[in-house]
Write a protein that binds this DNA or RNA. Structure first.
Lengths: 338, 338
DNA sequence: CTGAAAGCGCTAACAT
DNA sequence: ATGTTAGCGCTTTCAG
């Protein structure tokens, strides 16, 4: 395995010049640079990351912490992060903290402190103040995706506004009896997303002069199956059925559509359904939804990080950057029947 | 940031003893070990992975290469790998090679050669001989999940047997007109999975004295939507409709069920459907399927790796280890009507 | 712009 | 069982 000395010898320069030429840091004449590059290529030389990290203090590696891997939102964000990191020449070390707090503590103590990473991206994971402080002490930039962490740069859609938009779409079509399938409290640990979406829904109703009816709220677990059962309850009542459902995620909206079908109802004739996400399946089901863009969120997170990691960049102060979202009207919403 | 010297000083021993005590390598008296651990804890000391790697040549980091992140199979394997690695004290560096060959080359040249990892796990990715050779030269163990790579330790279910089992289940129920929704050729690059499942299907039919009818084979792209359209074609013919569909994945089986419903057919009364995977949604849709266990496959892959990475273990020779699969009969299959 | 040399923080011989 | 010490392969002052 060729080392930097081999390259230096072959190129006829010092190791310092090789290092500078290959890393782009410091000035090197075009001539030397060319010689070095050619020598490196000939020898198949690649820097040893550990030696480089040890000497420089930078690892060119970012830790990414996610609670789930097999959900659309998370894997999409992860994809965006991965791709952006790769482009920037960084590696991505993955920590899937699906487990209990034990695992979580291990990760924090073993890897963040093992100084394996230059920075951390936390996806929809509420870090404790202690954890955030620890990272700060170590000088590791941290950016969150999916909800605000106090004192941390975070990317998040405005859940209240998203829910309001979805609800107003239904109101605008003439619906008055609008049910909501939200998250159960268990999910609220992560950034109060369910609560915020519910708040937006209720605010929109009130603005339209409608009093939110608690009978028309049903909690579920963000899965198709969970929402399916919730929707059956909602739609199964004999009188004063809701004419529309706003589900807090597309998967739950799809569950609602399937429930409606199984009750012999036709969407959107008998009931309108709107979700949030623009999940892969949304288009297939003709689902009207408020799209968010998780891949873009992941890429954006990396950009923020790079601002901090690469020297000479202006680092903006910690704040919650608002992210784009967009109503996509498809075939699952329509004017109510009567 | 406390270093090993600080710990040594506080514990009243040498740095070598600290290193031994903390890594478990070499003999240390219980007394010293206790002192060291206490000192380390008090100082919040954690080894610098780069210094450690540089000195020892081991990184305690495994590279994982996947083509997709947002598909059930891949994210499930990844979860298993992540968890097993974490338990073994290894980190996981993720490379999502969804993109073109360019990206792929970059990863190989930049990261594998950057000596960032001790080993590589390739999930459903057919590595070229050159790539495999490169890894061998570097002394990096490599294990594949999801299909055989020549000369490489690989975990894979027997796709032919899986398909045969699924088909025989339908035959056993009395079906004779069994259609198959498989992968299109594009997907065959990865381990000929579609081809193998088709072969198993055809073999089962022949064994039952039935000549496979090419009209009853439809290729799709492993998505719900793709299979939905394929199934509509299959089920829409006026005469001699198939009475059962064997789909090469659960997502495609679900697409088939939805297609049948939209044609006004009742599953399993009018058509039986069986898939492969035991996807999260399979249970919800009452789908009969042949389960495979991707999490377990991921964990298993890590075990194999550890055999090679941790010294003093017997390493078995490269071979394709067969993996478990299991028929799960639910509500989507039944005897044909007549 | 380039080179010499001093580390970066550990691990692993080699001694003791 | 423990200490001493020579690197691991690079980056980065500091001179020139």
């Amino acid at each position: 395995m060729a080392g930097i000395d081999d390259v230096a010898r072959l190129a006829g320069v010092s190791t310092a010049t090789v290092s500078r030429a290959l890393s782009g840091r410091g000035h090197v004449s075009a001539a030397s640079k060319a010689k070095v590059e050619e020598a490196a290529a000939r020898l198949g030389y690649v820097v040893s990351s550990s030696a480089s990290s040890l000497a420089s203090g930078r690892t060119r590696n970012v830790g990414v912490v996610v609670p789930f891997l097999n959900r659309w939102f998370f894997s999409s964000v992860l994809e965006g992060v991965q791709q952006a990191l790769l482009r920037a020449g960084y590696d991505l070390t993955l920590y899937n903290l699906s487990g209990d707090g034990d695992e979580r503590a291990t990760v924090f103590e073993q890897f963040l402190l093992r100084r394996r990473v230059d920075a951390v991206i936390a996806i929809s994971l509420e870090l404790t103040e202690a954890e955030v402080r620890r990272l700060h002490e170590l000088g590791k930039p941290l950016v969150g995706v999916g909800g605000p962490i106090p004192g941390v740069r975070t990317l998040t859609i405005d859940d209240v506004a998203v829910a309001r938009l979805a609800t107003e779409h239904l109101l605008g079509l003439g619906h008055r009896r609008i049910a909501h399938i939200g998250g159960d409290l268990e999910f609220d640990v992560d950034f109060h997303l369910p609560t915020n979406r519910r708040l937006g829904y209720e605010a929109a109703l009130r603005d339209a002069g409608i009093d939110p009816d608690p009978r028309w709220f049903a909690p579920a677990d963000f899965t198709i199956r969970g929402a399916y059962h919730a929707a059956k309850q909602l739609l199964g009542v004999p009188h004063e059925r809701p004419t529309a459902i706003f589900a807090a995620s597309d998967e739950m909206a799809i569950g609602s559509i399937l429930a409606a079908r199984d009750l012999g109802m036709v969407v959107p004739r008998d009931v309108s359904v709107i979700g949030v996400d623009d999940h892969d399946l949304a288009n297939f089901f003709g689902l009207t939804t408020v799209a968010q863009f998780p891949r873009g969120q992941g890429e954006h997170a990396v950009e923020l990080l790079m601002d901090e990691l690469e020297p000479g960049k202006s680092r903006a102060e910690p704040s919650a950057t608002p992210l784009p979202f967009e109503l996509r009207v498809r075939a699952s919403t329509a004017r109510p029947a009567e």
